[in-house]
Every structure is written in C-alpha cells, then in structure tokens.
Design a protein around this nucleic acid. Structure first.
Lengths: 246, 246
DNA sequence: GAGTGGTCTAGACCACCCT
DNA sequence: GGGTGGTCTAGACCACTCA
C-alpha cells in the first residue's frame, strides 16, 4: 500500500472522503459539468474511484453543505446554481488573510499595537481565565490591495505563549503564531453585529462608516478557548454568506 | 411546543439518528450531565438504544455541530461549555417568528403593504425570473413583546401563488403562505450586511439606528428560488451566532 | 419497473490517549 | 495494554421519481 504516489489516485494520510470531495470540487470548478447538469451516480463514482458508496456519499454531502451540489432523492446529484454566488462561507473558519484572498485581493496587515497586559473582565470570562490573567493584546488594521478594509482586536492568553515572547516581534497571522506554539485553532463561535465607526475610537476611521463586526471565541481541538477577537469589516468590501438549512 | 408524549423507544418514520439525537439532546437539556462531563461511549449508547455504532456517531455528530457536545479522539464525548451561549444559530433556517420566540419574546407582525407588482431587475435575477415577472411584494415590521425590532421586505414569484390571491388578505408568516401552496422552504443563502436606518426610508425609523441586514434567497427542496428577502434586525436586540469550523 | 438516492447494520482495522 | 473515537467497507433494504 502507501506507495509514494501523487496526483490523481486517492489513498494517503488524508481521509478518503475529503480527497474525493477535493477532486470532485476541482472538477466542478473546472466546469466539467454545467450548472444544473447531473453528476455521475453514487455507484458510478464509487466504481470510478474504487471506494465504497458510503465514502462517496460523505464526499457528496460535504459538497452539498458547501453549496456546490444539490442531491435529490430518486433523481441524482446536480451542480447547484448557488455555487457561483458564494465567496466566503461563514461556516468555514478562515483567517483574515484567507478571507481577503478569497475575495481576489492581496492581503496585508499593519500592527497598531501588540503588548502583554491584564485581561478585562469580559475577555477573561470569554477565555475562561482568572480575572486579571495576562494576555497578549493586539490591534491590527487589515489591508486588501493596500487599502484598509478591516480592523481586528485580538486577545490570546499569555499562558499559551512562550514567556519570553517579544510582543514587538509579533507580525503576520495570529493563527501562525498559535500554530508555531502547537496550538491549532479548530472552531470558533462567532456573534455577528452591526457597528459604526464611532465604536472603534480610532483616528482615520470615519465615525459614520458602517461595519460588520464579528465577535469570536476560538477554540482548539480540546475546546480550550485560545483567542478572543473582535473584527470590524468595512461594509460593502466583503461578502459573507451562510447556507441555512431547515 | 414540541413532544409532549415522546416515550423512550426509537423506530418510527423519522430517521434513527435524528430520533437518537433528539433524545440525547433532551437528556442534555435536562442536565443529566454537567458541563464537561463525559457521555457514555459510542458502543454503550449503541447497546442501550439497540442501534449500530454508525447511527450513534451520526447522532453525536449532529449534536456536536449544534454545539452541544465535543468529541475527542481516544477520550470520549463531553458536554460542551459552548452549548449554553448560543441563542440563534444562523445555520438553521428559521422564520421571523421562530427567531423572536427563541429569544424568549412574544412575536408580532404588522403589514405595511402587500401587493402584486412587476419585479425589479435585481429581484428577477435573484429569483431566476423574466425581467418584468409579477411578484407578491410585502413590507412588514416585526414586533417582539409589542416593540418593533425588525423590518422585512419580501418578494415571492406570483406564479407560485394562486392567481386569485388577495394581497390584502395576506397576514402572518410568509412561510405558512408558501406551505399552504405546497411549497416548502428548505434552504436559503444569506448575505450579511450592516446598515443604518437611512437605508430603510421608513418613517418612525431613526436614520442613525444600526441594523444587521440579512439578504436571503430561499429555495425549496428542488432548489427552485421561492422567496427573496431583505430583513433588517435592530442591532442589539438579537443574538446571531455561527459555529465555524476548519 | 428500472434507476436513483436514503438509511442502517456489522464488522474490520487504524489512531489516539491514558496509566 | 486497554479503552476510546475515526475511517472505511460490503451489503441489505427502503423511498422516491419517471417513463
């Protein structure tokens, strides 16, 4: 088994269903099927890729959840007309940079501040910390094609970071910072709000500007809270979609 | 609201995994386990309810997606600390009334207008209609405990409704109206925006008030577009959460 | 009736976590 | 090593849609 292959054939360390979903998604993106066109049947796909029908179904389910396909009982699986209209699916946890990239722009970032300090009450509660626990606090502006499009205020428990970390040396993605300390963000609970510029209390920000604010608590695989953030997205610059199901 | 009878045994017309998830969810709500406490193992649950382990896993997965539990490889499944903090999960498609109820308030509704008219270009496109197709257009204000908390602008293709429908007689939920015509909303694609009162151009609305705006296209099981809506939620009155996963 | 997806099972084997 | 969840398979049977 485990031959050192690449490209097409499945089987490696990644789950079969994910590999299969990736390949099918790519074929959809390559417009192998038109909108509304029927994909091969589950049994055909199973034979083609030499996997069980359960695995095919798991892959197709992922595609349907992401809005790429629609499966109809007794009929088949079809390319969804929805797929084109989704840029950033909010169900998928992505970093700021990934979000900007998904919108076809070049991400950038500028740190306004980065320091260790005592946590505020609401932060401590969100992160399940003792009231005055130390945290790394950062303020950043996010750039897309050199233009400011978002602001983010982030707080990480100091205990998760090396004691000798120099806040001034922090730059780039906070996800990377966490991951280089063996902490892998897995899920977040996001609360969505509308806000205007006056909430930010920053110079350069028009107090009447509209923002979509995401207040998030991020967790790792063990459901440890690892990051509390408030991100203000300039209204109109991003498109956030959610697929809602009954 | 639901299940007054229930009774233990599974098996009926509803999927086993859903029945099982419902029962486990109820046991969680009844605080049978504390936050952080471990549930029985998958095999135990399988034996107890006399279903296969696959079915148990499907049920547990649903609970985890809804934020009730956390499953950890090699350890077990635990009651999630998150479960308490979510009011309205945006992934779940709910009507306005259901949303208000979920926040513990009494829903109300007032129709400002309801009429058949030609569709605007963006509506026709969203609903895949011919440019000037007829639509039922409504404007409503949504009340919670007698207070205005949201405004909704909805458009339904006229061809989906009886030709002799009297717009003046339309009241209450549009979901009900659709369902009484054998059209069942299944999914929607929601785009989220921030807006202020000036976007609404309604008297009684403070132009500086903040709103969270959900622009949605609803589809039925066959992915036919059936309803285009813009709903403005007064900021601060609702709590919309999303569970995001990598 | 033929063909499609929908559900569920039993079992094998792997990967992870603990003591 | 022993227990837990994670993945995948093969196959049975049901439910839906359409000609």
């Amino acid at each position: 088994m485990t031959s050192g292959d690449s490209s097409k054939p499945l089987r490696s360390r990644v789950q079969l269903r994910v590999q299969l979903a990736d390949q099918l998604r790519q074929r959809i993106r390559d417009s192998e099927w038109a909108v509304g066109e029927q994909l091969p049947t589950e049994s055909e796909i199973a034979t083609t890729y030499d996997v069980s029908r359960s695995t095919v179904r798991a892959a197709l389910q992922q595609l349907e959840n992401q809005g790429f396909t629609v499966t109809r009982h007794g009929l088949g699986t079809f390319i969804s007309p929805i797929s084109r209209s989704i840029k950033t699916g909010l169900q998928e946890l992505t970093s700021m940079s990934e979000t900007v990239l998904a919108h076809g722009m070049t991400p950038g970032m500028r740190f306004l501040s980065a320091e260790f300090r005592s946590s505020f009450a609401h932060e401590a509660e969100a992160l399940s910390l003792a009231p005055d626990a130390r945290v790394l606090s950062t303020e950043r502006s996010i750039l897309a094609d050199e233009e400011m499009v978002a602001f983010s205020f982030d707080v990480i428990p100091a205990q998760l970071l090396p004691a000798d970390l120099d806040p001034k040396k922090v730059d780039g993605s906070l996800f990377s910072l966490l991951e280089s300390n063996k902490i892998v963000p897995r899920t977040s609970v996001a609360n969505i709000h509308a806000a205007n510029g006056s909430h930010l209390a920053l110079p350069d920000v028009d107090p009447n500007a509209q923002f979509l604010m995401l207040q998030q608590i991020h967790y790792d695989a063990a459901t440890r809270p690892i990051l509390f953030s408030k991100t203000y997205f300039l209204e109109g610059r991003f498109e956030f979609s959610i697929l809602r199901t009954r």
